[in-house]
């Protein structure tokens, strides 16, 4: 049986990915702050990814449990609202969970030989990498950092470890996380269901794709953001920032 690791596995996209991997027959370890519930078809390790000592302890334990054939570094938090209305510490936490923890975990597993040769690593970034994200500036910064970390290690990891590295850029998903941070009046029906995103991301990762943008709508936004970055960021400002009625972190 092959092993899989998913962070942020207790809810949302991570939950959908962990369940799908379990259904495919992988022995799945889910990492999350919250317990996934007794019905979850995977093992659970509790960890606060904002805490360095906890991340180091987690890495040591995962190295013992490994090696992993599939590693999905998905956990993420957000801080939405006018940048200056959010405490500096909350922004730092977004950096720690969304950028630092996945990078540190990936490097630690790679160094210890806990990523199986022929296996793959998927980093979950965000569609904001292509569109910009006024109203979640630190979140956007962290997700951009993660995207470029993935791009940077793709070649060396393939060459020296035989591991394929991908980055996924999902757009708005129908999750509790998104509902908490969405602007007033946002239409949940327009968002992609997490299990659909999970299926697309895992399928593209299996093909060895470097860049995974799930769904036609998201791909169109990514393309527009690359062609006209300033205009698309301006549109994001009108769609998101101008409609935010509160700061949430």
């Amino acid at each position: 049986m092959t092993r899989a690791l998913v962070t942020g596995a207790s809810a949302g996209l991570g939950r959908a990915i962990a369940e799908r991997l379990a259904a495919e027959g992988h022995d799945v370890t889910g990492v999350d702050r919250d317990h996934p519930g007794a019905e979850a078809p995977f093992a659970h390790i509790a960890c606060d990814l904002a805490d360095r000592d906890s991340v180091d302890a987690l890495a040591a334990r995962l190295i013992e449990d490994g090696p992993f054939d599939q590693t999905v570094l998905n956990a993420g938090i957000s801080a939405t609202g006018p940048f200056e209305a959010i405490p500096a510490k909350a922004h730092a936490r977004v950096m720690a969970v969304n950028a630092e923890a996945p990078m540190v975990l990936c490097a630690a597993l790679a160094r210890a030989g806990a990523l199986s040769r022929g296996g793959r690593v998927v980093f979950v970034s965000s569609l904001s990498h292509f569109t910009g994200y006024p109203g979640a500036a630190s979140y956007a910064a962290a997700k951009d950092a993660l995207a470029v970390y993935a791009r940077s290690i793709r070649k060396p990891f393939a060459r020296t470890l035989g591991v394929t590295v991908s980055a996924a850029f999902p757009g708005p998903l129908r999750t509790d996380h998104a509902a908490r941070h969405a602007p007033a009046g946002a239409d949940a029906e327009k968002r992609m269901a997490p299990d659909v995103a999970a299926r697309l991301i895992l399928a593209e990762a299996a093909r060895g794709r470097a860049v995974i943008v799930p769904g036609a709508r998201a791909r169109w936004m990514a393309l527009a953001g690359r062609i006209a970055p300033a205009a698309v960021t301006g549109a994001m400002r009108r769609i998101v920032y101008d409609k935010l009625d509160r700061a949430v972190w």
């Binding site: 109203g135 630190s138 910064a141 951009d144 995207a147 970390y149 070649k155 970055p229």
Partner: peptide, 24 residues
């Protein structure tokens, strides 16, 4: 940049920060 991945990542982060904050 494969030679210093975290450095490249940090600079991409600054790009994204500026992109969002310039608008805000």
């Amino acid at each position: 940049q494969g030679l210093f991945p975290a450095y490249a990542a940090s600079k991409a982060g600054l790009h994204g920060l500026a992109r969002a904050l310039r608008s805000e």
